[in-house]
Design a binder for these strands. Structure first.
Lengths: 242, 242
DNA sequence: GAGTGGTCTAGACCACACC
DNA sequence: GTGTGGTCTAGACCACTCA
Protein backbone atom coordinates (compact mmCIF):
# COMPACT_ATOMS: atom_id res chain seq x y z
CA UNK A 1 0.00 0.00 0.00
CA UNK A 2 1.66 3.16 -1.17
CA UNK A 3 0.64 6.76 -1.07
CA UNK A 4 1.35 9.41 -3.63
CA UNK A 5 2.48 12.91 -2.89
CA UNK A 6 -0.45 15.08 -3.85
CA UNK A 7 1.64 18.23 -3.76
CA UNK A 8 4.60 16.93 -5.75
CA UNK A 9 5.47 18.72 -8.95
CA UNK A 10 5.60 15.22 -10.40
CA UNK A 11 2.28 13.95 -11.76
CA UNK A 12 0.84 10.79 -10.25
CA UNK A 13 1.71 8.60 -13.19
CA UNK A 14 5.40 9.51 -12.98
CA UNK A 15 5.45 8.96 -9.24
CA UNK A 16 3.88 5.56 -9.78
CA UNK A 17 6.35 4.81 -12.54
CA UNK A 18 9.25 5.61 -10.21
CA UNK A 19 7.84 3.40 -7.47
CA UNK A 20 7.32 0.49 -9.85
CA UNK A 21 10.76 1.02 -11.35
CA UNK A 22 12.27 0.88 -7.89
CA UNK A 23 10.47 -2.41 -7.27
CA UNK A 24 11.88 -3.82 -10.47
CA UNK A 25 15.39 -2.68 -9.59
CA UNK A 26 14.96 -4.17 -6.10
CA UNK A 27 13.71 -7.40 -7.59
CA UNK A 28 10.53 -7.02 -5.61
CA UNK A 29 9.16 -7.57 -9.09
CA UNK A 30 11.67 -9.96 -10.54
CA UNK A 31 12.47 -10.78 -14.13
CA UNK A 32 9.74 -12.59 -16.07
CA UNK A 33 7.32 -12.07 -13.21
CA UNK A 34 3.79 -10.87 -13.78
CA UNK A 35 3.43 -7.61 -11.91
CA UNK A 36 0.09 -6.84 -10.22
CA UNK A 37 -2.72 -6.24 -12.67
CA UNK A 38 -3.73 -2.74 -13.66
CA UNK A 39 -6.83 -3.02 -11.51
CA UNK A 40 -4.80 -4.09 -8.50
CA UNK A 41 -2.51 -1.13 -9.00
CA UNK A 42 -5.53 1.15 -9.27
CA UNK A 43 -6.53 -0.13 -5.85
CA UNK A 44 -3.09 0.27 -4.35
CA UNK A 45 -2.54 3.83 -5.52
CA UNK A 46 -6.16 4.97 -5.48
CA UNK A 47 -6.11 6.23 -9.04
CA UNK A 48 -7.96 5.24 -12.16
CA UNK A 49 -6.78 2.80 -14.77
CA UNK A 50 -5.83 5.56 -17.20
CA UNK A 51 -3.26 6.82 -14.73
CA UNK A 52 -1.87 3.36 -14.14
CA UNK A 53 -1.71 2.73 -17.87
CA UNK A 54 0.15 5.98 -18.31
CA UNK A 55 2.71 4.84 -15.75
CA UNK A 56 3.05 1.40 -17.29
CA UNK A 57 3.48 3.01 -20.70
CA UNK A 58 6.50 4.88 -19.41
CA UNK A 59 8.00 1.65 -18.17
CA UNK A 60 7.29 0.06 -21.53
CA UNK A 61 9.02 2.92 -23.32
CA UNK A 62 12.09 2.31 -21.19
CA UNK A 63 11.93 -1.38 -21.94
CA UNK A 64 11.51 -2.41 -18.31
CA UNK A 65 8.28 -4.29 -18.88
CA UNK A 66 6.28 -5.65 -21.75
CA UNK A 67 2.63 -6.58 -21.85
CA UNK A 68 0.86 -9.73 -22.92
CA UNK A 69 -2.77 -9.46 -23.77
CA UNK A 70 -4.95 -11.56 -21.55
CA UNK A 71 -2.08 -12.28 -19.18
CA UNK A 72 -0.61 -9.13 -17.74
CA UNK A 73 2.51 -6.97 -17.58
CA UNK A 74 5.79 -8.78 -17.33
CA UNK A 75 9.21 -7.60 -16.17
CA UNK A 76 11.66 -7.66 -19.09
CA UNK A 77 15.03 -9.29 -18.72
CA UNK A 78 17.68 -6.59 -18.29
CA UNK A 79 18.90 -5.17 -21.54
CA UNK A 80 22.42 -4.83 -20.27
CA UNK A 81 23.24 -8.49 -20.47
CA UNK A 82 22.24 -8.81 -24.09
CA UNK A 83 22.56 -5.34 -25.44
CA UNK A 84 24.82 -6.33 -28.28
CA UNK A 85 22.38 -8.89 -29.51
CA UNK A 86 19.72 -6.25 -29.69
CA UNK A 87 21.79 -3.60 -31.34
CA UNK A 88 23.03 -5.82 -34.04
CA UNK A 89 21.02 -8.13 -36.11
CA UNK A 90 22.70 -11.33 -37.01
CA UNK A 91 23.67 -12.06 -40.56
CA UNK A 92 21.90 -14.69 -42.55
CA UNK A 93 23.90 -17.49 -41.03
CA UNK A 94 21.79 -17.23 -37.92
CA UNK A 95 18.20 -17.80 -37.10
CA UNK A 96 16.55 -16.73 -33.90
CA UNK A 97 15.86 -20.27 -32.88
CA UNK A 98 18.17 -23.08 -31.92
CA UNK A 99 20.93 -20.77 -30.84
CA UNK A 100 23.60 -22.07 -28.56
CA UNK A 101 25.73 -19.58 -26.73
CA UNK A 102 28.87 -20.74 -24.98
CA UNK A 103 31.59 -18.87 -23.11
CA UNK A 104 35.21 -19.93 -23.15
CA UNK A 105 37.46 -18.36 -20.52
CA UNK A 106 40.89 -17.34 -21.70
CA UNK A 107 42.10 -15.66 -18.57
CA UNK A 108 41.11 -14.79 -15.01
CA UNK A 109 43.61 -12.73 -13.08
CA UNK A 110 44.18 -9.86 -10.71
CA UNK A 111 46.12 -6.96 -12.19
CA UNK A 112 46.90 -3.38 -11.32
CA UNK A 113 44.57 -1.07 -13.22
CA UNK A 114 46.17 1.03 -15.92
CA UNK A 115 45.57 4.78 -15.75
CA UNK A 116 42.94 4.53 -18.48
CA UNK A 117 41.09 1.71 -16.77
CA UNK A 118 41.21 3.25 -13.31
CA UNK A 119 39.95 6.51 -14.71
CA UNK A 120 36.96 4.79 -16.29
CA UNK A 121 36.26 2.78 -13.14
CA UNK A 122 36.76 5.88 -11.05
CA UNK A 123 39.38 4.24 -8.83
CA UNK A 124 42.93 5.19 -7.89
CA UNK A 125 45.59 4.24 -10.43
CA UNK A 126 47.02 0.79 -9.94
CA UNK A 127 44.05 -0.35 -7.88
CA UNK A 128 43.73 -4.11 -8.08
CA UNK A 129 41.13 -5.25 -10.58
CA UNK A 130 40.03 -8.57 -11.94
CA UNK A 131 40.71 -9.12 -15.58
CA UNK A 132 38.41 -11.70 -17.06
CA UNK A 133 38.71 -12.57 -20.72
CA UNK A 134 36.12 -14.67 -22.50
CA UNK A 135 35.24 -15.69 -26.01
CA UNK A 136 31.53 -15.85 -26.67
CA UNK A 137 30.70 -18.61 -29.07
CA UNK A 138 27.39 -18.69 -30.92
CA UNK A 139 26.50 -21.91 -32.66
CA UNK A 140 30.15 -22.97 -32.63
CA UNK A 141 31.26 -19.66 -34.16
CA UNK A 142 33.44 -17.39 -32.01
CA UNK A 143 31.89 -13.96 -32.39
CA UNK A 144 32.79 -11.78 -29.44
CA UNK A 145 35.96 -11.41 -27.43
CA UNK A 146 35.13 -9.82 -24.11
CA UNK A 147 37.44 -8.43 -21.46
CA UNK A 148 35.94 -7.38 -18.13
CA UNK A 149 37.60 -5.28 -15.46
CA UNK A 150 36.10 -5.23 -11.99
CA UNK A 151 37.74 -3.70 -8.90
CA UNK A 152 38.75 -6.48 -6.52
CA UNK A 153 37.29 -4.71 -3.51
CA UNK A 154 33.83 -4.92 -5.06
CA UNK A 155 33.84 -8.70 -5.09
CA UNK A 156 36.91 -9.98 -3.22
CA UNK A 157 36.82 -13.71 -3.96
CA UNK A 158 35.08 -13.47 -7.27
CA UNK A 159 37.39 -15.75 -9.19
CA UNK A 160 36.56 -18.69 -6.94
CA UNK A 161 33.07 -18.80 -8.37
CA UNK A 162 32.04 -20.95 -11.24
CA UNK A 163 31.57 -18.25 -13.81
CA UNK A 164 30.78 -20.65 -16.60
CA UNK A 165 27.37 -21.18 -15.13
CA UNK A 166 26.29 -17.77 -13.98
CA UNK A 167 26.50 -14.38 -15.63
CA UNK A 168 28.87 -11.88 -14.09
CA UNK A 169 26.04 -9.47 -13.41
CA UNK A 170 23.97 -12.13 -11.66
CA UNK A 171 26.99 -13.15 -9.62
CA UNK A 172 27.74 -9.58 -8.58
CA UNK A 173 24.21 -9.19 -7.42
CA UNK A 174 23.54 -12.50 -5.74
CA UNK A 175 26.88 -12.96 -3.98
CA UNK A 176 28.11 -9.42 -3.49
CA UNK A 177 24.92 -7.40 -3.37
CA UNK A 178 25.98 -5.11 -6.17
CA UNK A 179 23.16 -4.33 -8.57
CA UNK A 180 23.91 -3.01 -12.01
CA UNK A 181 21.24 -0.47 -12.75
CA UNK A 182 22.61 1.31 -15.77
CA UNK A 183 25.27 1.08 -18.42
CA UNK A 184 26.89 3.34 -20.96
CA UNK A 185 28.10 1.87 -24.19
CA UNK A 186 30.33 3.21 -26.92
CA UNK A 187 30.85 1.62 -30.29
CA UNK A 188 33.64 2.26 -32.76
CA UNK A 189 35.06 0.54 -35.81
CA UNK A 190 38.45 -1.09 -35.38
CA UNK A 191 40.73 -3.67 -36.88
CA UNK A 192 41.60 -6.87 -35.11
CA UNK A 193 45.05 -7.35 -33.65
CA UNK A 194 46.98 -10.57 -33.50
CA UNK A 195 45.45 -11.82 -30.30
CA UNK A 196 41.88 -10.94 -31.26
CA UNK A 197 42.24 -12.47 -34.71
CA UNK A 198 43.45 -15.71 -33.23
CA UNK A 199 40.58 -16.18 -30.82
CA UNK A 200 37.87 -14.94 -33.13
CA UNK A 201 39.21 -17.08 -35.95
CA UNK A 202 39.54 -14.19 -38.41
CA UNK A 203 42.49 -12.88 -40.37
CA UNK A 204 44.76 -10.28 -38.86
CA UNK A 205 43.50 -6.71 -39.33
CA UNK A 206 39.92 -7.69 -40.04
CA UNK A 207 37.30 -5.01 -39.47
CA UNK A 208 35.53 -5.40 -36.15
CA UNK A 209 33.25 -3.41 -33.90
CA UNK A 210 34.92 -2.32 -30.72
CA UNK A 211 32.59 -1.58 -27.85
CA UNK A 212 33.26 -0.32 -24.40
CA UNK A 213 30.66 -0.63 -21.73
CA UNK A 214 30.76 0.88 -18.27
CA UNK A 215 28.26 -0.68 -15.91
CA UNK A 216 27.09 1.39 -12.99
CA UNK A 217 25.33 0.68 -9.74
CA UNK A 218 23.30 3.18 -7.72
CA UNK A 219 24.75 6.66 -7.50
CA UNK A 220 26.45 6.34 -10.88
CA UNK A 221 29.20 4.28 -9.30
CA UNK A 222 31.18 2.29 -11.90
CA UNK A 223 31.39 -1.43 -11.25
CA UNK A 224 32.66 -2.98 -14.43
CA UNK A 225 34.46 -1.92 -17.55
CA UNK A 226 33.90 -4.34 -20.39
CA UNK A 227 35.69 -4.13 -23.70
CA UNK A 228 34.37 -6.24 -26.53
CA UNK A 229 35.64 -7.05 -29.96
CA UNK A 230 32.84 -8.17 -32.27
CA UNK A 231 33.35 -9.79 -35.63
CA UNK A 232 32.35 -7.33 -38.34
CA UNK A 233 31.62 -10.06 -40.84
CA UNK A 234 28.86 -11.51 -38.70
CA UNK A 235 27.33 -8.53 -36.98
CA UNK A 236 25.51 -5.68 -38.63
CA UNK A 237 23.69 -2.71 -37.25
CA UNK A 238 20.34 -2.07 -38.87
CA UNK A 239 17.83 0.72 -38.50
CA UNK A 240 14.83 2.16 -40.26
CA UNK A 241 14.17 5.85 -40.68
CA UNK A 242 11.07 7.58 -41.87
CA UNK B 1 -13.54 15.54 -42.78
CA UNK B 2 -12.59 11.93 -42.64
CA UNK B 3 -14.45 8.85 -41.63
CA UNK B 4 -13.11 5.82 -39.87
CA UNK B 5 -13.86 2.25 -40.76
CA UNK B 6 -15.93 0.97 -37.91
CA UNK B 7 -15.50 -2.64 -38.93
CA UNK B 8 -11.76 -2.54 -39.52
CA UNK B 9 -9.64 -4.86 -37.46
CA UNK B 10 -7.53 -1.74 -36.86
CA UNK B 11 -8.56 0.28 -33.82
CA UNK B 12 -9.57 3.87 -34.39
CA UNK B 13 -6.40 5.34 -33.01
CA UNK B 14 -4.24 3.40 -35.44
CA UNK B 15 -6.47 4.34 -38.36
CA UNK B 16 -6.16 7.97 -37.32
CA UNK B 17 -2.43 7.60 -36.93
CA UNK B 18 -2.17 6.24 -40.47
CA UNK B 19 -4.25 9.09 -41.87
CA UNK B 20 -2.19 11.71 -40.09
CA UNK B 21 1.02 10.00 -41.13
CA UNK B 22 -0.12 10.09 -44.73
CA UNK B 23 -0.76 13.82 -44.40
CA UNK B 24 2.71 14.36 -43.07
CA UNK B 25 4.24 12.31 -45.88
CA UNK B 26 2.14 14.28 -48.40
CA UNK B 27 3.23 17.53 -46.86
CA UNK B 28 -0.39 18.38 -46.22
CA UNK B 29 1.09 18.91 -42.79
CA UNK B 30 4.52 20.23 -43.62
CA UNK B 31 7.66 20.32 -41.53
CA UNK B 32 7.56 22.60 -38.48
CA UNK B 33 3.88 23.19 -38.98
CA UNK B 34 1.39 23.05 -36.14
CA UNK B 35 -1.06 20.31 -36.96
CA UNK B 36 -4.72 20.78 -35.97
CA UNK B 37 -5.31 20.77 -32.24
CA UNK B 38 -6.45 17.66 -30.44
CA UNK B 39 -9.91 19.13 -30.06
CA UNK B 40 -10.12 19.88 -33.77
CA UNK B 41 -9.12 16.32 -34.54
CA UNK B 42 -11.75 15.07 -32.10
CA UNK B 43 -14.27 16.98 -34.18
CA UNK B 44 -12.95 15.73 -37.49
CA UNK B 45 -12.89 12.05 -36.57
CA UNK B 46 -15.79 12.07 -34.10
CA UNK B 47 -13.84 10.45 -31.33
CA UNK B 48 -12.80 11.54 -27.88
CA UNK B 49 -9.57 13.20 -27.00
CA UNK B 50 -8.17 10.03 -25.45
CA UNK B 51 -8.34 8.33 -28.82
CA UNK B 52 -6.71 11.26 -30.57
CA UNK B 53 -3.98 11.39 -27.94
CA UNK B 54 -3.40 7.70 -28.45
CA UNK B 55 -2.91 8.29 -32.17
CA UNK B 56 -0.62 11.27 -31.62
CA UNK B 57 1.39 9.22 -29.16
CA UNK B 58 2.09 6.68 -31.86
CA UNK B 59 3.33 9.43 -34.13
CA UNK B 60 5.50 10.76 -31.34
CA UNK B 61 7.00 7.33 -30.79
CA UNK B 62 7.94 7.21 -34.46
CA UNK B 63 9.46 10.65 -34.22
CA UNK B 64 7.12 12.18 -36.78
CA UNK B 65 5.81 14.87 -34.47
CA UNK B 66 6.67 16.44 -31.17
CA UNK B 67 4.49 18.41 -28.81
CA UNK B 68 4.88 21.82 -27.25
CA UNK B 69 2.82 22.56 -24.20
CA UNK B 70 0.47 25.44 -24.74
CA UNK B 71 1.18 25.53 -28.46
CA UNK B 72 0.34 22.27 -30.11
CA UNK B 73 1.76 19.32 -32.01
CA UNK B 74 4.47 20.05 -34.55
CA UNK B 75 5.75 18.04 -37.51
CA UNK B 76 9.37 17.00 -36.94
CA UNK B 77 12.00 17.54 -39.62
CA UNK B 78 12.78 14.28 -41.45
CA UNK B 79 15.37 12.12 -39.81
CA UNK B 80 16.71 10.73 -43.06
CA UNK B 81 18.84 13.68 -44.05
CA UNK B 82 20.67 13.82 -40.78
CA UNK B 83 20.58 10.29 -39.56
CA UNK B 84 24.31 9.89 -39.27
CA UNK B 85 24.62 12.96 -37.15
CA UNK B 86 22.01 11.56 -34.84
CA UNK B 87 23.37 8.06 -34.60
CA UNK B 88 26.86 9.12 -33.86
CA UNK B 89 27.94 11.65 -31.41
CA UNK B 90 30.89 13.66 -32.45
CA UNK B 91 34.17 13.28 -30.68
CA UNK B 92 35.51 15.99 -28.47
CA UNK B 93 36.82 17.97 -31.36
CA UNK B 94 33.33 19.15 -32.12
CA UNK B 95 30.77 21.25 -30.42
CA UNK B 96 27.18 21.54 -31.48
CA UNK B 97 27.56 25.17 -32.30
CA UNK B 98 29.58 26.89 -34.95
CA UNK B 99 29.61 23.90 -37.21
CA UNK B 100 30.30 24.39 -40.85
CA UNK B 101 29.36 21.59 -43.19
CA UNK B 102 30.62 21.66 -46.75
CA UNK B 103 30.28 19.19 -49.60
CA UNK B 104 32.98 18.64 -52.17
CA UNK B 105 31.98 16.79 -55.32
CA UNK B 106 34.47 14.26 -56.59
CA UNK B 107 32.44 12.81 -59.39
CA UNK B 108 29.09 13.07 -61.13
CA UNK B 109 28.53 10.55 -63.86
CA UNK B 110 26.11 8.15 -65.50
CA UNK B 111 27.13 4.53 -65.27
CA UNK B 112 25.57 1.13 -65.82
CA UNK B 113 24.46 -0.34 -62.53
CA UNK B 114 26.41 -3.34 -61.30
CA UNK B 115 24.38 -6.42 -60.42
CA UNK B 116 24.66 -5.61 -56.71
CA UNK B 117 23.52 -2.03 -57.17
CA UNK B 118 20.65 -2.87 -59.50
CA UNK B 119 19.47 -5.53 -57.12
CA UNK B 120 19.38 -3.07 -54.26
CA UNK B 121 17.65 -0.45 -56.38
CA UNK B 122 15.31 -3.08 -57.72
CA UNK B 123 16.12 -2.26 -61.37
CA UNK B 124 17.32 -4.40 -64.27
CA UNK B 125 21.07 -5.05 -64.35
CA UNK B 126 23.02 -2.44 -66.24
CA UNK B 127 20.27 0.15 -65.92
CA UNK B 128 21.74 3.62 -66.17
CA UNK B 129 22.24 5.24 -62.81
CA UNK B 130 23.81 8.46 -61.63
CA UNK B 131 26.90 8.03 -59.54
CA UNK B 132 27.50 11.03 -57.32
CA UNK B 133 30.49 11.04 -55.06
CA UNK B 134 30.93 13.67 -52.39
CA UNK B 135 33.14 14.34 -49.42
CA UNK B 136 31.33 15.86 -46.47
CA UNK B 137 33.58 18.28 -44.65
CA UNK B 138 32.81 19.37 -41.10
CA UNK B 139 34.78 22.33 -39.82
CA UNK B 140 37.46 21.77 -42.46
CA UNK B 141 37.77 18.11 -41.52
CA UNK B 142 36.77 15.54 -44.16
CA UNK B 143 34.65 13.04 -42.28
CA UNK B 144 32.34 11.23 -44.65
CA UNK B 145 32.80 9.95 -48.17
CA UNK B 146 29.39 9.45 -49.75
CA UNK B 147 28.50 7.71 -52.97
CA UNK B 148 24.92 7.97 -54.20
CA UNK B 149 23.32 5.87 -56.91
CA UNK B 150 20.03 7.03 -58.43
CA UNK B 151 18.37 5.52 -61.50
CA UNK B 152 18.56 8.02 -64.37
CA UNK B 153 14.91 7.56 -65.29
CA UNK B 154 13.89 8.87 -61.88
CA UNK B 155 15.45 12.28 -62.46
CA UNK B 156 16.64 12.52 -66.07
CA UNK B 157 18.60 15.78 -66.09
CA UNK B 158 19.62 15.67 -62.48
CA UNK B 159 23.28 16.44 -62.98
CA UNK B 160 22.48 19.81 -64.52
CA UNK B 161 21.31 21.09 -61.19
CA UNK B 162 23.47 22.94 -58.76
CA UNK B 163 23.77 20.25 -56.16
CA UNK B 164 26.12 22.23 -53.99
CA UNK B 165 23.24 24.34 -52.83
CA UNK B 166 20.40 21.93 -52.40
CA UNK B 167 20.23 18.51 -50.80
CA UNK B 168 19.64 15.58 -53.11
CA UNK B 169 16.46 14.69 -51.31
CA UNK B 170 15.08 18.20 -51.63
CA UNK B 171 16.01 18.25 -55.29
CA UNK B 172 14.33 14.92 -55.98
CA UNK B 173 11.19 16.17 -54.39
CA UNK B 174 10.99 19.72 -55.71
CA UNK B 175 12.11 19.11 -59.30
CA UNK B 176 11.12 15.51 -59.91
CA UNK B 177 8.22 14.98 -57.54
CA UNK B 178 9.82 12.02 -55.85
CA UNK B 179 9.31 12.00 -52.12
CA UNK B 180 11.53 9.93 -49.90
CA UNK B 181 9.30 8.57 -47.20
CA UNK B 182 11.46 5.92 -45.61
CA UNK B 183 15.00 4.62 -45.48
CA UNK B 184 16.78 1.51 -44.34
CA UNK B 185 20.29 1.80 -43.06
CA UNK B 186 22.95 -0.78 -42.34
CA UNK B 187 26.16 -0.14 -40.51
CA UNK B 188 29.29 -2.28 -40.49
CA UNK B 189 32.92 -1.85 -39.52
CA UNK B 190 35.38 -1.71 -42.38
CA UNK B 191 38.87 -0.59 -43.26
CA UNK B 192 39.55 2.23 -45.67
CA UNK B 193 40.90 1.49 -49.09
CA UNK B 194 43.34 3.62 -51.05
CA UNK B 195 40.77 5.92 -52.54
CA UNK B 196 38.82 6.44 -49.32
CA UNK B 197 41.98 7.05 -47.31
CA UNK B 198 43.07 9.72 -49.72
CA UNK B 199 39.89 11.74 -49.61
CA UNK B 200 39.24 11.33 -45.92
CA UNK B 201 42.84 12.18 -45.13
CA UNK B 202 43.49 9.06 -43.10
CA UNK B 203 46.09 6.33 -43.45
CA UNK B 204 45.40 3.33 -45.63
CA UNK B 205 43.47 0.57 -43.85
CA UNK B 206 42.15 2.80 -41.10
CA UNK B 207 39.05 1.58 -39.31
CA UNK B 208 35.88 3.22 -40.59
CA UNK B 209 32.15 2.77 -40.35
CA UNK B 210 30.61 1.65 -43.60
CA UNK B 211 26.94 2.46 -43.98
CA UNK B 212 24.53 1.62 -46.71
CA UNK B 213 21.26 3.44 -46.96
CA UNK B 214 18.41 2.62 -49.28
CA UNK B 215 15.91 5.44 -49.58
CA UNK B 216 12.39 4.54 -50.60
CA UNK B 217 9.40 6.39 -51.91
CA UNK B 218 5.78 5.27 -51.67
CA UNK B 219 5.14 1.61 -52.22
CA UNK B 220 8.58 0.66 -50.93
CA UNK B 221 10.09 1.70 -54.26
CA UNK B 222 13.87 2.26 -53.97
CA UNK B 223 15.07 5.63 -55.19
CA UNK B 224 18.60 5.98 -53.97
CA UNK B 225 21.37 3.77 -52.74
CA UNK B 226 23.89 5.67 -50.70
CA UNK B 227 27.13 4.19 -49.48
CA UNK B 228 29.06 6.13 -46.89
CA UNK B 229 32.49 5.74 -45.41
CA UNK B 230 32.76 7.47 -42.05
CA UNK B 231 35.97 8.12 -40.23
CA UNK B 232 36.16 5.89 -37.19
CA UNK B 233 38.49 8.21 -35.35
CA UNK B 234 35.94 11.01 -35.29
CA UNK B 235 32.61 9.28 -35.02
CA UNK B 236 31.43 7.17 -32.13
CA UNK B 237 28.17 5.48 -31.43
CA UNK B 238 26.90 5.98 -27.92
CA UNK B 239 23.98 4.57 -26.04
CA UNK B 240 22.68 4.16 -22.52
CA UNK B 241 21.05 1.06 -21.18
CA UNK B 242 19.17 0.50 -17.98
C1' DG C 1 -8.52 35.54 -21.80
C1' DA C 2 -8.79 32.04 -25.17
C1' DG C 3 -6.67 28.00 -26.81
C1' DT C 4 -3.37 24.26 -26.25
C1' DG C 5 -1.45 19.97 -24.62
C1' DG C 6 -0.88 17.40 -19.87
C1' DT C 7 -3.15 14.98 -16.40
C1' DC C 8 -6.94 12.62 -14.29
C1' DT C 9 -11.66 10.58 -13.09
C1' DA C 10 -15.36 7.06 -13.74
C1' DG C 11 -17.14 4.49 -16.24
C1' DA C 12 -17.78 0.81 -20.54
C1' DC C 13 -17.08 -3.15 -23.91
C1' DC C 14 -13.84 -6.16 -26.29
C1' DA C 15 -10.53 -10.10 -27.44
C1' DC C 16 -7.52 -12.97 -25.44
C1' DA C 17 -5.36 -16.38 -21.92
C1' DC C 18 -6.13 -19.75 -18.67
C1' DC C 19 -8.70 -22.93 -16.09
C1' DG D 1 -16.20 -18.18 -16.66
C1' DT D 2 -13.07 -15.07 -14.76
C1' DG D 3 -9.38 -11.98 -15.10
C1' DT D 4 -6.26 -9.52 -18.12
C1' DG D 5 -4.70 -5.77 -21.05
C1' DG D 6 -6.59 -2.98 -25.28
C1' DT D 7 -9.70 0.41 -26.69
C1' DC D 8 -12.98 4.02 -26.12
C1' DT D 9 -16.43 7.54 -24.21
C1' DA D 10 -17.54 11.90 -21.72
C1' DG D 11 -16.39 14.61 -19.00
C1' DA D 12 -12.90 17.77 -15.77
C1' DC D 13 -9.03 20.92 -14.12
C1' DC D 14 -4.29 22.41 -14.78
C1' DA D 15 -0.11 25.04 -16.60
C1' DC D 16 1.46 26.92 -20.43
C1' DT D 17 1.66 30.11 -24.77
C1' DC D 18 0.29 33.92 -27.20
C1' DA D 19 -2.11 37.90 -28.35
Amino acid sequence: MSTLNKDSYLPYYLQIKDILKERIMNKAYHVNMLIPSENDLCGEFHVTRATIRNALNELKKEGLIYTAKGKGSIVSPPKIEQSLLKFYSFGREFSDTNETIVSKFLNKAVIGASPAISRKLNTKPNTEVFEIIRVRIFNDLPLILETSYIPVHIAPDMLENNMEEESIYDLLESKYGVKIVKAKEYIEPQVSNDYESKYLDIVYHSPVFYTERISLTYGEKPIELRKSIIRGDKFKFYTELY
